[in-house]
């Protein structure tokens, strides 16, 4: 249990992100919440690949021996770039909403019912 602290930190990050997305009324805060969940999931993937006492999966400098798992790192790389792409798109939309409606309040949208 105590050794699973990184996993529990991931759950805490997901919870904080959801908290921001549910209870914060500012669109930029909602987007920051998504970024936090994204970071949490990335952390989760890398933590899954960790093997204690092993080396980075690169032969150039590592002494031959056990290595940490390479696949989760590759997945995380993909996921980081996806994260920044999504973030840029959402922020530009938020800017346009501010331009159209003069507010970033989620409660004052025009699409209702």
């Amino acid at each position: 249990m105590i050794h699973n602290i990184p996993y529990l930190a991931v759950v805490a990050l997901v919870a904080i992100g959801f908290w921001a997305m549910i209870f914060r009324k500012n669109l930029i805060k909602v987007i920051i919440g998504i970024a936090i969940i994204e970071s949490g999931v990335n952390f989760f993937l890398v933590a899954l690949g960790y093997r204690s006492g092993a080396y980075a999966p690169i032969y150039t400098h590592a002494p031959s021996g056990q290595m940490v798992l390479p696949v989760p790192q590759a997945l995380t790389l993909t996921s980081i770039v996806i994260g920044v792409a999504v973030l840029a798109l959402m922020l530009s939309l938020a800017v346009q909403i501010y331009k159209k409606q003069g507010t970033l309040d989620t409660r004052k949208g025009v699409l209702k019912k």
């Binding site: 997901v14 997305m21 669109l27 909602v30 987007i31 998504i34 969940i37 994204e38 999931v41 989760f44 993937l45 996921s79 999504v86 798109l89 959402m90 939309l93 938020a94 346009q96 909403i97 159209k100 409606q101 949208g109 025009v110 699409l111």
Partner: peptide
């Protein structure tokens, strides 16, 4: 238009993150 698109994006990115989790 931006509001509809932002709602769609928030929803789909959070869904995709749940899939990734």
């Amino acid at each position: 238009a931006p509001e509809g698109a932002l709602k769609f994006m928030v929803i789909s990115s959070i869904g995709a993150l749940m899939v990734l989790l």
